[in-house]
Design a protein around this nucleic acid. Structure first.
Lengths: 99, 99
DNA sequence: TTGATACTTCGATGAATGTCGAAGTGAGAG
DNA sequence: CTCTCACTTCGACATTCATCGAAGTATCAA
């Protein structure tokens, strides 16, 4: 189940909880799905275009996903770009698969 | 990632959400972990012995896990036995791994 | 039948959370 | 400098939710 050559990332209990809670909200799940579909990073504006929430709410969800460690956010000027942290993501799947 | 010969179970969006929310609570995660550790079914009393919650709270969590489809509960006389539904569990992991 | 055991259901409560509008910040165009 | 654009922070609100005690149900032993 753990893929060959994958770096081992150790998730703390705290991070495990943050990730699980982050995924529990359908909106956040949808956002993560959209980010994950892209091979690289997704501009925040692309999320705004697809997700029917205000900028304030979107910003809130972005922070939750970032705090959980699921995404990285890079800022260039006015813009923000979001990228899935696939290492963390795989670590989470790996952990779940041991249940 | 999907294991050879695994039966395909289709998770509805609704069930996906129920599972994610079920996992979001650390207590429920711990309960599921304990159930998963056992190859077969776990008596409810074993959970009571390990989880520091009242019977009322435990009963509530059991129902949530069952509603999400993650566990099956069989009742014999006074006792209840809980078992992880590994088919659903793998379907969930499979779905997540596609992100 | 009486009592004990094993859960379940109900009602209440305090805490967490998703959402928004409004105001704030900072970058860049003109 | 001024205005706009892209996002963030703040404060508020309604809803959800984990938890408990108390009362209920059902099983089983004595």
């Amino acid at each position: 189940m753990s893929q060959a050559g994958a770096k081992r990332v150790r998730l703390t209990e705290r991070q495990l909880g943050l990730i699980a809670r982050a995924l529990a909200d359908p909106r956040r799940y949808a956002i993560l799905e959209q980010i994950g579909k892209s091979r690289g990073s997704v501009p925040c504006s692309a999320l705004r275009a697809c997700q029917p929430v205000t900028a304030a709410t979107l910003s809130h969800h972005m922070k939750e996903l970032e705090t959980a460690g699921l995404i990285r956010i890079t800022r260039e000027g006015k813009f923000a770009h979001l990228e899935l942290d696939r290492e963390i993501w795989h670590a989470y799947l790996d952990r779940l698969s041991r249940i």
